[in-house]
């Protein structure tokens, strides 16, 4: 799996994790290029449908990053998000996906380093898991 470059979709909330990602940039923390960030205002805006869509389009992994519990800019959006993602993870497992392909993590605006660490670890995890098990065109 040496040349496997995973395709990872990362949803970041505007206030904490997107700012944390910016913070990683400001601090010039280096990390793999495999992820693309989609900004939403809150992790609670991420509809599990968006995650399923990403997987259906061939994403090898999906991350949802939000504010730490108790730190949500919108008070409790991250609590809603964690419930939805927990249920989504059950659904993905039923499909046969390795649940590690979906990661929910909390990154604050000041945690550029945690952002870096989270990305690096997730890329490693997905590299170890290999490409998405979703095979197109198999009838």
């Amino acid at each position: 799996m040496a040349d496997f470059e995973p395709r990872i979709v990362t949803f970041c909330c505007n206030w904490c994790s997107y700012a944390g990602a910016d913070g990683a940039g400001v601090a010039r923390l280096q990390m793999p290029t495999n992820f693309r960030i989609i900004r939403t205002m809150c992790s609670a805006r991420v509809d599990p449908e968006h995650v399923l869509r990403a997987f259906s389009k061939g994403a090898d992994g999906v991350m949802i990053l939000g504010c730490h519990p108790a730190d949500c800019h919108y008070i409790g959006g991250n609590y809603r998000a964690r419930r939805r993602i927990a249920l989504l993870r059950m659904v993905l497992e039923q499909y046969g996906f390795d649940p590690r392909r979906l990661k929910l993590e909390w990154v604050s605006a000041s945690e550029g380093e945690k952002f870096q660490k989270t990305i690096c670890e997730f890329v490693d995890t997905i590299k170890a898991l290999g490409p998405t098990p979703l095979v197109k065109g198999d009838e």
Partner: peptide, 23 residues
């Protein structure tokens, strides 16, 4: 676009936030 996801997201959203949620 997705019937199943739209239902289970709503169902998950109906679970109340707990006192212990922050920790």
């Amino acid at each position: 676009t997705e019937h199943g996801a739209s239902v289970f997201t709503a169902v998950a959203s109906l679970f109340p936030i707990l006192e212990e949620d922050p920790t």
